[in-house]
């Protein structure tokens, strides 16, 4: 099978498993919702404008925290009954496996971020300022989601066979996603009209996140085989 054929099958399989197990709906979404509500309690919007100002950052912080849970789940599915070894023996191309898992994770992140943006609007009195801003926000969610999914799959694969992977994964991954966190927050600020960032600057930040996404996905596809062998 070609790399893309493998990627399609892996992504379809992962999304089907998610649709059946409902981990995203029953665990990850409530978790990220609770995180946003806790932020809302901690930052009293009645007494200051700070909650509205920091809402974009909170959306992406909640996304990154939720991503950790999602990655553990995505690789637990492969690890629990030895499917990862079976995939290797089946000669599945590592690049296809990486891309498939990245696509599956990115689709789930897209759904998660849509909910988080709505929660930000409700809890922090933010709003998307017009059609152009909505477009910027949509592109940000897709591009940043792809970047996070790429990094998450790469580090999830790295930690999959390691002892103490539950604590190792955040330690390894969180520092790496800082550029995505900053870039996505800035462009979301532009879309929400907070933080004094204009639309032009917002698109520049999206471009930066896009470059990171290309690096993460391209590099991950190349490196994933070596990671699995180790």
């Amino acid at each position: 099978m070609s790399v893309w054929a493998v990627a399609r099958r892996i992504a379809a399989k992962d999304l089907r498993i998610e649709a059946r197990s409902r981990v995203l709906v029953n665990q990850v979404l409530p978790f990220s919702g609770v995180v946003m509500v806790l932020f809302a309690f901690a930052l009293d919007k009645a007494s200051s404008d700070i909650p509205r100002q920091v809402a974009p950052g909170l959306v992406w912080l909640a996304t990154v925290f939720s991503l950790l849970v999602m990655i553990q789940r995505v690789f637990a599915v492969e690890r629990d009954d030895g499917a990862l070894d079976a995939l290797r023996v089946a000669g599945v191309t590592p690049a296809g496996l990486f891309l498939g898992k990245t696509i599956g994770l990115a689709v789930q992140l897209l759904a998660l971020d849509l909910v988080l943006v709505v929660l930000a609007v409700i809890l922090f009195d933010t709003a998307v300022a017009g059609l152009a801003a909505a477009g910027l926000l949509a592109v940000t969610v897709v591009v940043a989601g792809t970047a996070l999914a790429g990094v998450g799959t790469l580090y999830g694969g790295l930690a999959a066979g390691a002892k103490g992977r539950d604590t190792l994964l955040p330690l390894l991954m969180l520092p790496v996603v800082v550029p995505v966190l900053i870039g996505a927050t800035r462009s979301t600020e532009a879309a929400f009209g907070t933080g004094g960032i204009g639309m032009t600057e917002g698109w520049a930040w999206v471009a930066l996140v896009g470059a990171f996404a290309a690096l993460a996905v391209g590099g991950g596809a190349l490196a994933f085989g070596a990671l699995l062998e180790e």
Binding site: R20, V77, A83, D85, A86, V89
Partner: peptide
Amino acid sequence: VGLLGHANGLYADLTVAENVAFWGATV
């Protein structure tokens, strides 16, 4: 080669037919 180890290499949330079809698709 085909390897059947101590683990079965199956996905618990997929049906029997979906599992066999998935692995069959690799060849």
